[in-house]
Structures are given as structure tokens and as C-alpha cells.
Write a protein that binds this DNA or RNA. Sequence first.
DNA 1: CGTTTTCTTGACTCAGCTCAACGTACGTGG
DNA 2: CCACGTACGTTGAGCTGAGTCAAGAAAACG
Lengths: 205, 205
Amino acid sequence: MQSIPAEQQFGMEGDKPVAYSNIISGIVKLSKLMADGRQQIVALQFAPDLVGRPFDITNKTSIEAATDLKLCSFPRKALESLIAEAPDLEHRLHQQNLRELDDARDWLLALGRKTANERVASFIYFTALHIDPDALSKGQMIRFQFPLKRSDIADFLGLTLETVSRQITKLRQSKVIALIDNSTCEIIDLPMLRKLAEAEELPKL
Amino acid sequence: MQSIPAEQQFGMEGDKPVAYSNIISGIVKLSKLMADGRQQIVALQFAPDLVGRPFDITNKTSIEAATDLKLCSFPRKALESLIAEAPDLEHRLHQQNLRELDDARDWLLALGRKTANERVASFIYFTALHIDPDALSKGQMIRFQFPLKRSDIADFLGLTLETVSRQITKLRQSKVIALIDNSTCEIIDLPMLRKLAEAEELPKL
DNA sequence: CGTTTTCTTGACTCAGCTCAACGTACGTGG
DNA sequence: CCACGTACGTTGAGCTGAGTCAAGAAAACG
């Protein structure tokens, strides 16, 4: 069990992953960097996810604490030999990776086809869902902290921080959300937020 | 073993997957549709991938033949009980899903941060890699067919078909590629193509 | 062949980017 | 306690890359 302060990278040595970590609390961001400095956050992970790409990786992705973290880490070898023994463990990992794949594909739709406004709405909805799925499904009014600062939200949504700021202002003005302070968000009009976020064909509701 | 003509959907009944299929030959596209018709292709799958999201799915994605296909299909139940018996099968599936996750995250970077020109270059590079990884790594001149028509490439890259067409013209004019006919592409300047495609920080080369 | 679908090109528009100024919160040390 | 610096967020003005709309060219198809 260890603590990691926000903004710090971990679990890698050079560009090889050396450890797997269970998230006890806090939020982890995975990001990709281009040679000229352009950056894209490709995933956020929440407790109780396991961080660390199993098996060999060709893929350069950096792992960083988005908030202060509490982790439970294992060396790479340890987990891999555990997996070899316990098929059930691999099954659970597989399930998590499938969820991550679904998430990634949802964001592909957002980055490829949604407007700035819809992307920000999607981010807020996505965050609220991860923080308290139950409250959301009951349609209660919800208050929560943004897990990322504006520039990180921008890197997640493929926008600039200015555009993110403007769209948040717009959502505030149209009474979809309210800001208690810069990083505390309250959802006022959940149906509208959902409509903006899921401009997708709804499977059901 | 069955054949599926290009453009046809398969493997689903309503929005539930009913079968898994091994791709013998051809290319499969997975796409998401928004209520107003906006569309995003979220993955392409090549032989010998297994098509079909294992276990339960909450995620609405349609599965369609991008080219004529040869498939080997199993009913959903059959594969799931096979998995329960043979942990090795789950391991192989898991590996494939991890590759898909890596791909999806590479495209997140492309859709979030790359220009139209870089996205089209990435698509050409990606396609060539999947069709003949060896020839590419030897740096040979490569000729291949685009697996998708312009409007599908656009849906994959989060662009319009006009923009895709213009960028292909531009790559042709700058002698990075040549077109033998509309759908046959030859890579002339591989280093340049790679530079455009992987504006990423190169792990190694 | 004519018909239909796909691709290319041009002219114009606009959502989101860039650059720049300013506001606000917080910490540090004089 | 206040002055100052630093990091973060907001807002404005103007620009531009990609979208839209429209017209033709070129394949594909029966």
C-alpha cells in the first residue's frame, strides 16, 4: 500500500511497465504524447481498477496520478505468475479490459463526431457516472468534483482548454449544470445533460 | 464456414450479438451510429480475428462486412461454454482484446490530436501494416487495396469524405503515395508516410 | 449503353484554435 | 499582515482548417 501525489508518474521505468497497481482510491490518467508536445489522454481509471497493461506492450502510454492516489502495487512478474495459476484472475482482468475497450470506443465516437459542447457534456456525464452511478440512475441532483483541471479535460476531449472553459460556461448559462467553485460541479438538468452527452441512438433508457 | 457480401451486417439480432465468427478472409468494420445519423467506425478487424464481444454487452455497436467475407461462425452459447472449459482459449481472446484496446487508444490520439493530413497518412500506414507487416518493415515499396471506400475512411477518421479525398490528392501530389486506380495505393515515400503517421514520440525505430 | 454510385474539385462558411489580456486563488517570505 | 509570484481559469478578437453545398468526372453495374 502506497500513496502517490497528484501529477506524479508511476509504474514505469523508462518506457517499460514494472508494476501493476490496484487503485484503492483516486483517479489515474493514461496519456499519449506526440513529438511536438500534442497530448491525448486515452483513459481514466477509477478504483478498484488494476492499472498496468498485462503482458508485453509495444504501446507507449504514460501513467500518471490525476488526483492523489492510494495504490496497492505488485511487481510485474508476481502478477503474471499469479495469472498463470489462477484462470479466474485472468477472467476478471479480461472483464476489466473489455470495459476499457468499450470506454475507448465510446470516446472514439466522441472525438470523431461530437461537437465541443457535446464532448464536454459527455465528460461531465461520464465523470458523474463513475463517481456515483446509483445517484445518477435515480435521477437525483448530483454534486461532485472534476477529477481533472481544465487543461487535462482538454487533453481528454481533444480540445483546447479555452474551448473547454467556454463550453462549461455555456452549460452553466443554460442551467444544465452549476459550478459551486471552479472544480465542484452540480448537475441541474440531468435529462438535458444526458441528451447532449448521448446524442447516440439510445439502446433503451 | 459461410460467405458474407460486402456491406452486409451480421452476427446480431436486433442489438444482441448471437454469434461469434472467426474471420477467414476479408475485413470487418465495427461502427457506432448517432441518432441524427453521424457515424463513427470504431474498429477494423482482419483475419484471423474473432469477431463478437465476449460476455454481456451494454454497448451498441454494429458489425458489418467491409469487404466480401469468409467466416467461420459459432453460436454465442457454444463459444462461452468452450471458454469456461479451456482457460487457454480465454487467454488468446484476452490477448486479442488487448491488441484491440491498444489500437483503439492509438486512434484516440489520432482523432483527438492529429490533423486531417496526418489522419489519412495514419490510415494508409495502418492499413499497409495490417496487410503486409513484413514488407513494410523491410521498407519495400508496397502496393495494396484500400479496404474501405472514401466515405467509410471518413467515418473511421472522423472527417468528411471530401476532406479525405483532398488529403489523398495532397499525398499523391507530394509523391508520398501514388494511386494506381481509385482504390489501389502504392507507397512511394515510406519514411515520409511514417513521419506523418507517427507524429508520436517514437519508442524506437 | 444509360443509370447509379463513387470520387474529385471549387467556393464559401463556421466551429474551434491562437494569441492576448485579465481575474482569482493560494502560498511564501519580508 | 500584505506584497508578490505562480498556477489556474475566464473572456475577447481575429484567424484558419475542415465542413457544407454544389457541380462535374469517372468508375461500376445491369
